[in-house]
Nucleic acid binder design. Structure first.
Lengths: 108, 108
DNA sequence: AATTTTGGTTTATATTTTAAACCGGTTTAA
DNA sequence: TTAAACCGGTTTAAAATATAAACCAAAATT
């Protein structure tokens, strides 16, 4: 009965509103550029930059900087490990949701 | 196409590993006491106390302090608003998951 | 050739999280 | 008895995290 909802089961790297949004957005495509992601996630450039760095440090995404028409273009791509971690994250949330849905016996 | 993954869609009160765990645990029962919750969520007393306060300030739970056998007993109960918010939270995560699952066209 | 815009990064501040220290009371051991 | 240890929490001070303003180099516009 105990430890059904241990908070350590939730991946803290993915579990941040912005990073969850980033991971979900990147899961939909092969690659997405910085500015498209900025619009999808609806945050500031500074925030996006910081959170992309954190995801990259943890191997969940990779970024590539290119020049296109003399302008910088940052491409973001989810890694296989990132996809796995994202799915595990969703599975844990679903597990919490499922356990929450089944209960409703009083314990007092 | 745009703003599919707006991070503002995620309820920031619920979206904390510990508070999500608390809400999921309280959704399973009528009431749960502090120490049972402490065990389910697997955190420290200080953390649980702080996060319960935050949930209570936002009307998502209520607490009641009683004495049983000369000892204090804190009972925690999710409110109807808390249940609604919790379900909306889960729906948003599911929406992200569903949109993430359907994509996989390159945008570059 | 100065100004503005673009595509970001750095960084200082604000917010949140964490757990150690504390607290009033109770039980146990001496 | 009494003092040491325990119980059920709360407070708070420090650490970690998130945020957006300020910044930057290069390109475009005036």
């Amino acid at each position: 009965m105990t430890k059904n909802f241990d908070h350590h089961k939730i991946d803290e790297i993915i579990h941040s509103r912005i990073r969850l949004s980033i991971m979900a957005a990147l899961a939909t495509v092969d690659v997405m550029d910085f500015l498209t992601l900025l619009d999808e996630v609806n945050t500031t450039k500074g925030n996006l930059s910081v959170h992309l760095s954190k995801l990259e440090e943890n191997g969940y995404i990779v970024t590539e900087k290119k020049f296109v028409k003399k302008k910088t273009l940052t491409l973001c791509k989810i890694t296989p490990e990132g996809i796995t971690a994202f799915h595990e994250y969703l599975n844990m949330v679903e597990e919490f949701a499922r356990k929450a849905a089944t209960g409703k016996d009083s314990n007092q």
